[in-house]
Each structure stands twice: as structure tokens, then as C-alpha cells.
Design a protein around this nucleic acid. Structure first.
Lengths: 148, 148
DNA sequence: CGAATATAGGCAAGTAGCTTGCCTATATGT
DNA sequence: ACATATAGGCAAGCTACTTGCCTATATTCG
């Protein structure tokens, strides 16, 4: 792969990523959840898989436990999550989505679908699936954190 | 495209983007430029195309002029850029890369090439070029700013 | 021309999201 | 039982940004 091709691949990957984040953010906002930032989505993604402790969330987001705790404080105040006693460890608290949190997660999924529908219209379904397969091979399921 | 496919495409795109940024950041650091953060790369990308004013840079990075000016202050102090009088506008200053700044830009290009070589080994050259083409069609050359 | 307005960019203060350092409570291992 | 590790909270500090305001130069219009 020539140098110029590498540059344009790198740039277009970052641009596509940005376009996705912007599109999803706009879609979530348009569905009435206007008090959330993109970073919150990564927390929701982890919590929607059955809840997590502060420490697990911090590891997932690659931030300190303090930062994760502050984020949970904020989401709690806004009604998206709640802290429950952990069923197996009296030190820990299990953070779970509230009904509002689950509704927001669904809105985010719909926003993703909307954004990708536009891409499907451009590329066609086959190439879009091929794109997904290639990306999965490149970056196999790493934790889903902000990039920089 | 089914819902689950859309989710996994979105996740893998973000993961790949993160992997790229991490890889380039590590490569630039390994080449001796340890005092830079990923965000600086976006400024370099704009400046390497012949210099820019503070206002242009701020627009490119999607931050306020103050933030751009602070970034330029930092890069100036570290020897990567310098402020010159603007040849056509006595109000403005033209920010240009120094020799060190150009060397760093080359290091970044090499780091991109390194990272993508690993991907090429996984996907093969043809699919990697196809990936680039598809990404270019999805996100045609938008400005290159941090995503969130 | 000259006056009004717009633009480039700097100074200072404020803010948001993060980190580090330290603390208590509970769990785990010897 | 005791020593050590882990979950998480409190407080302070840091960094990259923002907002508000200022001067100098450009541009537009009477």
C-alpha cells in the first residue's frame, strides 16, 4: 500500500468515525435525550449488558474509578441509572439502567440504525456488511472507549 | 441490515479508529516525539499544507480561537511551529512548521504506514484498498478533528 | 477622504472532566 | 485472628477548553 493510500485510509477512517458519533449524538438528542454527551453512550453500552460496578465501568471506559463514579453520579441525578447494593459483595454497588436509561439505549440503537441506513444507501448492503467484517477483523471487539 | 449488524459495525468502526489513534500515537512517541498528544496531530495535518492562521486552525479543529492559540503557544514553546507575520494581512500571523515540525509530520506518516501494514497483513491489500474506498465514500474528506 | 463595522488575535477568568492522594468498609488469604 | 487486597467515596488539583473583553488592522460605505 502506497504512502498516499495509507494517509487517505487513516483520514477517512477517522472522518467516518466522527460522522458516526455526530450522527448518533444528533439522533439521540432528536429523540429527546438532550442532556447526554457521546461519552455517556459508552457507559450505557456497558451497563445495558446487565449492570456493572464502578470499578468495572472505570476499566471499560479506561478512566479512574473517581471519574467513573462522577459519571454515575451525573447519570443518577439525571435519572438514567441507579445504584443498588451488590448482591454478592457488600462493598460494591451494582449500577443498573432505569427505565429511562433503557429507553435512551433504545433511542441510541435507533440512531445508529438511522445513520447506517444512509451509508447503506451509498454503498449498498453487501459492501456495508463486508465493511463490518473487515473492521471486526482489524479491531476485534476491544473495549469501547473514547479515542482521544 | 439487521439491528445487530448495525451495532457491531458501529462498535467495530469506533474500535478501529481508536486502534489507529493509539497505534499512531505510540509510533510517533517511539520515534522520539514524546511531548505530543493525538490532538496535536490534527493541527500538524492542517499546517503541513502550507501554514495557516490561528482562525483557520481553530475552524479546522472546531475549537475557539483561544484554544487554537493556546495549542500554538504550546507547539511554539516545544519548537514544532513558529509564528510569522502574515504576508498579506498585518493583523494575522501565519503559523508554519519548523524543521522539527516537519520531521515530526514525517514520523507520523511513518507511524500510520506501520499501523496499516499490520492491517494489510490481516486483510490483504485488496480488501484494505476496498475499505479505504468505501470509507471515503461514506465520509468524504470532512475536516479532521477529534471526534468527542 | 473619514467614520462605522468587521475581523485577527491576545489577556484574564471561569468551567468541565479528569487525575492523584487519602480515607473507610468489606473481602480474602494465611 | 490478623494482614493484606479490593470497592468506593471525599477533597484537592490539573488541563484543555470556554466566555468575555480588549487592541490593532481591514473593509465597507457615507
Amino acid at each position: 500500500m502506497r504512502n498516499h493510500d495509507a494517509q487517505s485510509l487513516a483520514f477517512s477512517l477517522l472522518a467516518a468515525s466522527r460522522a458516526l458519533v455526530d450522527g448518533v449524538s444528533a439522533g439521540v438528542s432528536a429523540r429527546g435525550f438532550t442532556d447526554l454527551r457521546p461519552a455517556h453512550g459508552f457507559a450505557f453500552a456497558r451497563l445495558s449488558a446487565g449492570g456493572a460496578t464502578i470499578t468495572e465501568l472505570a476499566g471499560h471506559l479506561d478512566v479512574t474509578r473517581q471519574a467513573a463514579a462522577q459519571l454515575v453520579d451525573e447519570l443518577t441525578a439525571k435519572g438514567y441509572v441507579e445504584r443498588r447494593p451488590h448482591p454478592e459483595d457488600a462493598r460494591a454497588r451494582l449500577i443498573v439502567l432505569t427505565g429511562k436509561g433503557r429507553a435512551c439505549t433504545q433511542a441510541a440503537e435507533a440512531a445508529i440504525a438511522d445513520t447506517l441506513r444512509a451509508w447503506e444507501a451509498t454503498l449498498g448492503p453487501q459492501r456495508l456488511l463486508a465493511l463490518r467484517d473487515d473492521l471486526l477483523r482489524i479491531a476485534p471487539g476491544g473495549p469501547l472507549r473514547p479515542a482521544w
